[in-house]
């Protein structure tokens, strides 16, 4: 039985062999949690390798989320993977180097990424390229104050209370309850 440090090191070396400079590092958190840090530009290739690799088989995507560390360290997208066969947990972090938050969507690999990525887009403004249906999920669709979980977003929102009430009252029922909405909301991708 390999120790957690050895197995993380082995995975790190194997990934570096495959992807070279796209692997930024590896760490162990809380004594037994393995973390791999990768470049968001090549995240799709690395994640699909981790999913399909015979040795690792991370076939269950548990979570997609993001962390905003504030102005200095920026935003990270964090994936939690689980291998049903080998019973291993892995955390993959993709730190964005700058303010440009663009990463490949993994909906093709895991169906459950659909809503999870929509949530990250809604609350952090991370753009998942290749996502079939990237729109707001928790906030209202006409929400115009930005992305609430970013550190520069004030707790009570960007607009004044009066402005927020005004926007809420300006909505009409027809914006929400009409047959065309189904077509709008489901988007052209889903029609077959």
């Amino acid at each position: 039985m390999k120790t957690i440090t050895e197995s993380t090191q082995a995975l790190h070396e194997e990934l570096v062999d495959q992807f070279g400079s796209a692997i930024l590092g590896s760490e162990i958190q809380c004594e037994d949690q393995r973390v791999i840090v990768i470049d968001p530009k090549q995240s799709f290739e690395v994640l699909s390798w981790l999913k399909d690799s015979e040795v690792y088989q991370y076939d269950l995507l548990i979570d997609v989320t993001a962390v905003d560390y504030g102005a200095k360290k920026g935003v990270q997208v964090v994936y939690q993977l689980w291998s049903v066969n080998y019973k291993q947990l892995l955390r993959v972090k993709c730190p964005f180097p700058g303010p440009d938050l663009e990463i490949s969507s993994v909906v093709e690999l895991w169906g459950c990424a659909n809503w999870l990525e929509r949530e990250v887009f809604d609350l952090f403004g991370v753009h998942f390229s290749g996502h079939p249906d990237l729109r707001r999920i928790l906030m209202p669709k006409n929400y115009s104050e930005g992305h609430p979980l970013r550190k520069d977003f004030p707790l009570r929102g960007r607009f004044s209370r009066e402005k927020q009430t005004e926007i809420a009252l300006d909505q009409s029922y027809e914006d929400y309850y009409r047959p065309e909405q189904l077509r709008d909301s489901l988007g052209p991708q889903k029609e077959d």
Binding site: T65, V67, D68, G70, V78, Q80, C112
Partner: peptide, 26 residues
Amino acid sequence: GMYVVSDGGEKPIRWRVRPPSFVNLS
């Protein structure tokens, strides 16, 4: 699941709940 991120302070940087029903409903 709970994903907690700390910078050593008395408040979390990020507190994320991995919501089971959210994924199940999707």
